[in-house]
């Protein structure tokens, strides 16, 4: 079997339907072949990552795009749990949030976020950012091998 570029699995944790729409459109526009899985709150994200509560068949993502302001369990907690879990901590977590607050930035990096991106207000820029992130994290960055046992 010819070894092709691996299709990356991307998990988007985002409650804002507008942003989900824009992200999806950005993926479509760039004709990425990567898979975009969307969960809408922190609990769901954790369920997905730990493969429970209906996500038993979920595929372990290669990259996680994480919004900070989430209902229920918010993004910070999710980040903390991921980075504390040996099986998950290597997965790059890109914090994608509307908050510009320094507090959030510092806190996120302290929780070992891999990068912090403020959502651009302009829709075109938003999509550009999403595409850049995709390019960078999927094509340029060398990611750790995904756990084949999953």
């Amino acid at each position: 079997m010819i070894k092709e570029a691996k299709l990356a699995e991307i998990l988007l944790v985002e409650d804002n339907e507008g942003d989900i729409e824009l992200t999806k459109e950005a993926f479509e526009e760039a004709q990425f072949r990567n898979t975009l899985n969307v969960v809408e709150d922190g609990d769901e994200a954790l369920d997905y990552l730990f493969k429970r509560n209906g996500f038993e068949d979920a595929v372990m993502p290669d990259i996680i795009l994480l919004d900070l302001n989430l209902p229920c369990t918010d993004g910070r907690e999710v980040l903390e749990i991921i980075k504390a879990e040996p099986r998950l901590k290597r997965i790059p977590v890109i914090v994608l949030t509307s908050s510009r607050a320094d507090k959030d930035v510092v806190e996120s990096y302290d929780l070992h976020a891999n990068c912090y991106i403020v959502k651009p207000v302009n829709a075109a820029k938003f999509m550009a950012v999403v595409q850049t992130v995709e390019n960078f994290w999927v094509d340029i960055v060398c990611l750790p091998p995904s756990n084949s046992d999953d």
């Binding site: 409650d15 339907e17 809408e40 709150d41 302001n69 209902p71 229920c72 918010d74």
Partner: peptide
């Protein structure tokens, strides 16, 4: 674990949907 959080401003437990 949410008993305290719910009284904070802008803290929500559920998606808007």
């Amino acid at each position: 674990r949410h008993f305290k959080k719910i009284f904070e401003v802008f803290q929500r437990l559920h998606r808007r949907s």
